[in-house]
């Protein structure tokens, strides 16, 4: 069997979706659930635009088969609607075209949750996983710090 109906938890809801084993998580989320927050940017794990949170950690959804995520807790950008980090991105002008933004927000949110004490090196290490071509890096850093400060 090269495909089947699989069960997913996405943004707190349950989905029964027919998938091919060869489908990536990104392809399934975008194509079959209506959540388009994860953006395809390279399909190669290089840009981070498709980052989602799986069981509390960031994952590039183009690098994960959907079958691997079956039964796991998945959050996309839509699941962070109204979050502090999302508001901070708006407040600090932390985007221009906005295409990379959901991926950054997922990455930042996980960093805030897992490492509220994150130092400069940790932040560099984490944020190097994504690419912002408009280059709002300064502003993204400010937005992230503003939320980290509240969590310390």
């Amino acid at each position: 069997m090269t495909g089947r109906a699989a069960h997913f938890h996405i943004n707190g809801e349950e989905y029964n979706i027919y998938i091919r084993n060869a489908d990536t998580l990104l392809y399934v989320i975008r194509g079959k659930t209506g959540f388009t927050g994860a953006k395809p940017g390279c399909l190669n794990g290089d840009c981070g635009a498709c980052t989602v949170i799986v069981n509390g950690w960031p994952v590039k959804s183009c690098l994960m088969l959907a079958v691997e995520a079956e039964g796991e807790e998945i959050i996309t950008a839509e699941g962070l609607h109204g979050s502090e980090i999302q508001k901070a991105f708006v407040k600090y002008f932390a985007f221009q075209c906005g295409y990379c933004t959901p991926g950054y927000i997922m990455n930042c949110q996980t960093l805030i949750t897992q490492y509220p004490e994150a130092d400069r090196n940790k932040i560099k290490e984490w944020l190097d996983s994504n690419i912002c071509r408009c280059t709002s890096y300064e502003e993204i850093e400010q937005a992230l710090y503003s939320v980290l400060r509240q969590h310390r």
């Binding site: 980052t51 994952v59 290490e125 984490w126 996983s129």
Partner: peptide
């Protein structure tokens, strides 16, 4: 390890 690919990719 920390210099391989990037942090998010290394989750996978």
């Amino acid at each position: 390890s920390k210099d391989i690919a990037d942090n998010t990719a290394r989750m996978k």
